[in-house]
Amino acid sequence: MSALPEIVNPVEPLLRTERMPHIWCPGCGIGTTVNCFARALLESQRNLDRVAVVSGIGCSGRVAGYVKLDSFHTTHGRAIPFATGLKLANPSLEVVVYSGDGDLFAIGGNHFIHAARRNVDIKVICVNNLIYAMTGGQTGPATPSTAITATAPYGCYEPSFNLCALAEAAGASYVARWTTFHVRQLTKSMGEVLRKRGFCFIEVLSPCPTLYQRRNKMGDGLDTMKFYKEKSRVRNGAPTSEVALTKDGEIAVGKFVDRERPDYIESMRGRLSEQLGDRYVEMECPVCQ
């Protein structure tokens, strides 16, 4: 056994280890999703110099600061339009947006639906902890009805978004939902979107033991993982209209949508070359090789 080489965590090269330990709470699932993402990237055999991560603001927005890739921590809700500009200026990049439910669907909701409509070739990973965690646990667009939050002390009475249905209706090419319990499936799904062209969306339910589960007497991170295990049903291909989440009900997981649509650049190129013929000039990307 003494001949064994030094063994390092396979995800280590993808992390800014000098910044560890990270800021996420004990039992928070964001790190688990990053772990899956790192493994999916390694398995994809992609040139990691060509993968960029763009985050918004919030706990999940901090992902950009921990992955050892070109990474952009942008403004609240605007990761998607930033990513759109980055991708269009350098189409050789794989651009992944990594952010949370509040960032992507409240303040950034408009950008989400329009990027899906355009089918911009970006991959959106939404860590859904059902709450605004960084600011102390306020109601968000994905907070289920009756859940207690910092700004809904008597229980939330707004309906929540069904994120997967919204993504599909807006035009996403790929829509899946997993939880942090489903690490293998999540890793596989992340690998699939890295191979797919177009606007892809993965929702990952993740514990926020500090601010969501605690207030709702749902235990700690581990209890939440067991809850996910117990409540989840794999329903690949289910109509997204049937996968809405409730506070205590079934959690439908799986790949719901996987379809082919021309992406933004393809549509642009097709139309402009049809109309302009030889006069159409592709954008020269100074960085592309």
């Binding site: 759109t84 269009l88 408009n110 100074p286």
Partner: peptide, 19 residues
Amino acid sequence: MEDELAASITIQGAVWGGA
């Protein structure tokens, strides 16, 4: 873009992409 919030950050994504 869908609004000026988006337009004003999309250009910055493009700049970091080399444009």
